[in-house]
Design a protein around this nucleic acid. Sequence first.
RNA 1: GGGAGGAUUCCCGAGUGGCCAAAGGGGGCAGACUGUAAAUCUGUUGUCUGACGACUUCGGUGGUUCGAAUCCACCUCCUCCCA
Length: 411
Amino acid sequence: MLQMLPIHEQMRIIAKGAAEIINPEELQRKLHDAAGKGRPLTVKLGLDPTAPDLHLGHAVVLRKIRQMQELGHRAVIILGDFTAMIGDPSGKSKTRKQLTHEETLRNAATYKEQLFRILMPERTEIRFNSEWLSGLNLAAVLELAGKTTVARILERDDFKSRFSANLTIGLHELFYPLMQSYDSVAIQADIEMGGTDQRFNILMGRDIQKHYGQESQVALFMPILEGTDGVEKMSKSLGNSIGINEDPRVMFEKIMAIPDSLIIRYFELCTDLHPDEVDLYRERLDNGENPRDIKACLAHEIVRLYHGRQAADAAREYFNTVYRDREPPKDMVDLDVSPFTDDQGNTDLVRILVKSGFAPSSSEARRLILQGGVRLNAEKVNQFRIPVRDGDILQAGRKHFTRLCKPDRTC
RNA sequence: GGGAGGAUUCCCGAGUGGCCAAAGGGGGCAGACUGUAAAUCUGUUGUCUGACGACUUCGGUGGUUCGAAUCCACCUCCUCCCA
C-alpha cells in the first residue's frame, strides 16, 4: 500500500526546478485522486531509441521522474522506435537515419542500464511505441488524424516557419505530434515529462486524450540545463557535458568548474534534495559564504547520487588535495623511467610526458616544459633531460601527477 | 534545366604564384593572479628534433611552373538565385 506524502508536500517536490506545469490545479486533483484510490500516477517520458550516453542534462527529466517514484508513482518510458522512422521534426530539418530492429534492441539494453542508474526499476516500465502504432490500420489513422486540424498542427513553430519559407514538409511529418499523443492514449498517461522544447507535442497529447475519452495528462516541463560553460545547453557535441557514467573525480572536478551563478540551478535540477535543503544552501550563498564550499557540497551530492558516498568522499578528497591545496594526490601511478634514461643518468622528460599521456605529442611536451608547466618534486623544470631519482614526483600542468621509479629498486 | 558562389590548420575566417605551417578571432593548453569557477594579463597552439633544420598540410585527382593554398582541367560535396 502506498505511503503518500500530503498533497501540498508532493506538489512542492514535483514543482522544484520545473519550468512550467500545465496545469498545477489538475496536477493537484490527480494527486488527490491517486491518494484517495491508492493508485499511483503514470508518468510518461518518450525517448529516442538512438544510442544513449546520458549526461546531467538528460538526467534533469529523469531525476524528476525518480523523485515522483519516491513519492509512490510509476514511470512508463517509451522508446520511440516507430516514431523514429519519421524523426521528430523539432528544430533540425535533417532526416534521421533508419535504425534496424537489432540496433534498436541493442540501444534499448544500453538505455535500460543507464536509466536504472537513476530510476527505480520496480516502478519503471519500458515500452516500444511500435507495439501499438505499427498495428493501426488506415481507418484508425484517419480517426486519429480527425482529432486535430491542419491549422492546429501548423501552429507549431518549426512547421510554421518551414511552411512560410516554402520548405519541404512531408505529409507524414505532420503525424509526428499525433503519434506522440497517441502514445499517451495507449498508456493512459497522467503526466507527461519533457524539456521545454517538447511543449507542442505534449500539449497536443492533452487534446487527443480528451478526444479518446481520457482525462488529459498534465504537462510537466523541465528547463534545459546549461553545460559547464554556463551558457550553451549541455550537449556532448559541444564538449560541455558531464556524463552520468563519468569517473567520480572528473565528475567532481567538472562540477567545480561551473560558474558560481549556476550553483542553485544545479542543486534544483541535478539533485534530489528537498526544496528546504536547497533553500538552506541559497541562504548560505546569500550570506556571503565562499561559493567554492557550497559548490563542493553540490559536487559531492551529485557524485554521490551516481557513484555512492565512498566515491564521492574520495573525489572530494582528491579535489581538495590537488586543486585547492595544490599538492600531489595520495595515490599516483608509478612510471618506470629506466627505458628513457641514458648512460649519464639523464632522463628524457619529453618521452615520459608522452608515455604517461600527459602530452599528446613530443612537440607539446617540449612546449609544456618551456612554458614552466612541468615540475619535478614541485620544482619547475626547464630542461628536456634531467637526472631523476627513484620516487621523484613529476607534475604536468595543474592536475597530472606520476611517481617516477627505477627498475632495480623496489617501487 | 539555366546561372552564381563556396570547400583553408580543432571551429569561424583572411590569404589569390615564392616573404605561408599559413593573418585575425574563438576554443584548448600553460604561466601569473585567486575564493573553485569567472574576469584580467602573458605565452603557446601541425609533426619530428637539444638546437640548426627537415617533413606533412589548405575538398579529391591530374597538370602548368625552378616554385602552387594561390594558375589550368576534371571530379565530389555544399550554398544561393532564376525556371
